[in-house]
Design a protein around this nucleic acid. Structure first.
Lengths: 213, 213
DNA sequence: GCACGCCGACCGACTACACGGTCGGTAACA
DNA sequence: TGTTACCGACCGTGTAGTCGGTCGGCGTGC
């Protein structure tokens, strides 16, 4: 068996700093980029391998199969997002929770791959047998739980009017988030997600905010 | 070559009423159902053919290739939707436009395939080289145009406050629509799109509606 | 009123390729 | 010597699309 020229050299360079971890991280990054434009189903592990600088078998050495790669990608996303949102200390409550959504969207506007990834995957994962189906269900459920708690907390402190329809607000807010991302992925330069989201949140506050406070 | 038993009989039965048109309509229906659960990319024309009751070659006789099938499906959807929305006469304007969105969502709630179809396809079609990419762009653009006109008309008649941020309202409304559909496809029995949408529209009216009128 | 040629509907067999995954190996390091 | 990082060759399967054909009906010319 013959290795391509330069193979050994590359090998040695990485050797010093845990080649495995580096390769895995590179593969995840490549997968994110691919999945974000082609979705999971249509992407091939061969293409991910190519972008990682590995052969398909080499990639499969680090991730036993395609779904393992997807899992790693989703874990990465979940980790970074929740670090950003709830980084130090407790999750924000009341209107502050909604403000932190704006911050999240603002940050994600500078990382198109993450938005593309989410839009594609969550649409695909709607199918019950999709490998990300459970992830998507969990993701929505936990987001709903957080926002529900945030609103109820806001009612307790008096920030939010007691007759605000909690569930509808939660679902609509998530819908605006998802829907804006969808439009943004389709035509990134035609709009500002942050600006639109702000208008929505101002409406929310105007309607259900306690003006006495 | 041997035909399966009963072949000739079936042939003759259909003969009397334009077999081709029937087959095409059946195929489109089958494709809608398949695309709505598996998306376009992951669906195979073989499966569509099976559900239509044709061989793959038979199906390919009516639709030269897979994208032609998709085009037919999208045309069908566009036709039915715009008939429902603008059926007789002009498109509704002012708040009436938003009310007709509720009606559309209410009707679509009884046709899960249509919602699934839209959610999958519009997510996939985000990719520039997807065969439905142009369709999706057009769909969004024309919806935006209609709603923009509706709001501006509402301002003219005094229904809507003159300082309402038109573009943001348009994009947010579309986002709510899309986002709710997405959530509904994921867990159909956990929510009512109509109820949530109403809350959103009430907020809109409360914030930007002219209370003098 | 009937023979004939054409067209539309439909078929099975086949091709070319992409894709996920397996297997058995090599090379370096500890 | 065992472990980790990789590789090429190979395989089975699924998929879009082609090809050459059959069969029945319909219009046309006689």
């Amino acid at each position: 068996m013959s290795y391509p020229p330069g193979y050994r050299i590359e090998r040695e360079r990485n050797r010093t700093e845990k080649a495995g971890d580096i390769a895995r991280a590179k593969a995840i990054q490549a997968a994110i980029e691919l999945f974000s434009t082609s979705g999971y189903n249509k992407s091939s592990i061969a293409e991910v391998a190519l972008r990682t600088g590995l052969s398909q078998s080499g990639l499969l050495h680090h991730f036993p199969n395609k779904t393992a790669l997807l899992t790693a990608v989703l874990e990465q996303r979940e980790k970074e997002d929740s670090e950003f949102l709830f980084g130090e200390g407790a999750a924000p409550m009341g209107w502050a929770a909604f403000d932190s959504l704006v911050a999240l969207v603002a940050r994600n506007s500078t990382r198109p791959e993450w938005i593309g990834l989410f839009v594609r995957i969550s649409a695909e994962a709607t199918e019950a047998k999709h490998p990300a189906n459970q992830w998507m269900l969990d993701h929505y459920r936990s987001t709903r739980e957080w926002l529900t708690q945030a609103i109820e907390d806001g009612k307790r402190t008096g920030e939010i009017l007691p007759d605000a329809p909690v569930e509808a607000i939660v679902r609509n807010t998530i819908a605006v988030l998802d829907g804006l991302q969808q439009q943004w992925v389709a035509e990134p330069h035609s709009m500002s997600m942050v600006a639109e989201l702000r208008v929505y949140l101002d409406q929310l506050r105007a309607t259900w905010g306690n003006s006495q406070q």
